[in-house]
Design a protein around this nucleic acid. Structure first.
Lengths: 200, 200
DNA sequence: CCGATACGCAACGGTCCCGTTTCGTAAGGA
DNA sequence: TCCTTACGAAACGGGACCGTTGCGTATCGG
């Protein structure tokens, strides 16, 4: 206090390694992406994968859940740019992005957590929903509302239901669908079918 | 061989306790239904829950996966009786059964396995798909085909896609949907929306 | 240079579960 | 009765992680 107290307010001693921190979060996401459940995730395994001592992890996070939360927080939800001309095309873009990402390791993190551990780690899931789910939901909701205003969609549409149909269907396909029909035309097929309905 | 070899061909010694076997399978399903993942499931915990010695389990199953397979095999997929008059009503019946079951413990077994461990235990998942998924799929497929023949549905309908839409949407709702709209009318809402399409 | 803190590493005692073995007892057939 | 197998319970040595501690070294501010 006598000398200076500039914004940084750096504590004495060697500063924590940002590289180590990054490696830890990276390793955590990698292990989750490889199909490891949260409960099987061990600090020792993370430390080994990150090339880091266990101490370095415990110094930063007091428990596993906090670490996983921070790791998930580094995941962005890259909502694709939407042309904004046709509601149908924008929906296809949104769904196709889901399909496209379903092959990525990081997306598997997301899916594994969301699908399996949502009720066992509610706090974690809540955090995760905010950063990964809500942005996409908001984008889709906006498109649907635009469609209702423009007349491209029924004005009486229940938005929540429509979102569940579109999202649920794509998730179902990426998880259990035949791998052969995973092309970009899958999103088109879903959207067109949902738009038109299956009744004649 | 010298004496008799009747159908039973009972081996010498005390016969295995059917009660113990049942208790083991029951305990296994209970633990899974309580949210325990396959990998966290321990033989010791199963034995304790079933009130049985570990020996009794190891005598019957050489590994955990075999035990879980047998446990899942005891789960029926009770396809509800379908009125068979209206395709729309039959689809509602099928979906509503999914919603109704989603609260049961045994159904949570099913969901937990299917959602989280499908790629980590493919052999197990395959067995499980046969006994729990396929019967429902077959029933729904039959209804859809009937609808296409009767003209209640488009004759050009892609059946796989339609099934994914209906099933995926209901699964999505049971897992993440607002609990307030979980009434029996949810199935009606989904089916009607999918039938009519969301476009005007 | 000095004090403080972080680093990677190795080791600790403790807990949980593994799969096996041993025990005394129970329940069938010959 | 005798033989065989199954039973529940307890104990075994072994392995994986836990969260903590101590070590020698590295990196900051003063």
């Amino acid at each position: 206090m006598t000398i200076q107290d500039a914004g940084a307010a750096r504590p004495a001693g060697r500063p924590r390694s940002e590289k180590a921190e990054k490696a830890i979060l990276e390793a955590t996401l990698d292990l989750i992406g490889e199909g490891m459940g949260i409960s099987e995730l061990s600090i020792e395994a993370i430390a080994a994968r990150a090339g880091v001592g266990k101490t370095t992890i415990y110094r930063r996070w007091s428990n596993k859940e906090d670490l996983v939360v921070d790791a998930l927080a580094t995941l962005k939800a890259p909502v694709p740019p939407l042309a904004g001309e046709s509601v149908r095309d924008d929906l296809v873009t949104l769904l196709d992005q889901m399909r496209d990402e379903s092959g990525h390791v990081r997306t598997k993190c997301v899916m594994n957590i969301a699908l399996s551990e949502s009720d066992r780690y509610p706090h974690l899931f809540e955090k995760f929903r905010k950063i990964a789910i809500e942005p996409r939901r908001a984008a889709m909701r906006q498109v649907l509302e635009r469609g209702m205003a423009s007349g491209e969609l029924r004005s009486t549409l229940e938005i929540e239901l429509a979102m569940a149909i579109l999202t649920g269907t794509m998730v179902w396909f990426t998880k259990w669908g035949d791998t052969s029909d995973r092309g970009p035309e899958l999103a088109e097929g879903i959207v067109d079918q949902v738009l038109a309905g299956i009744a004649p």
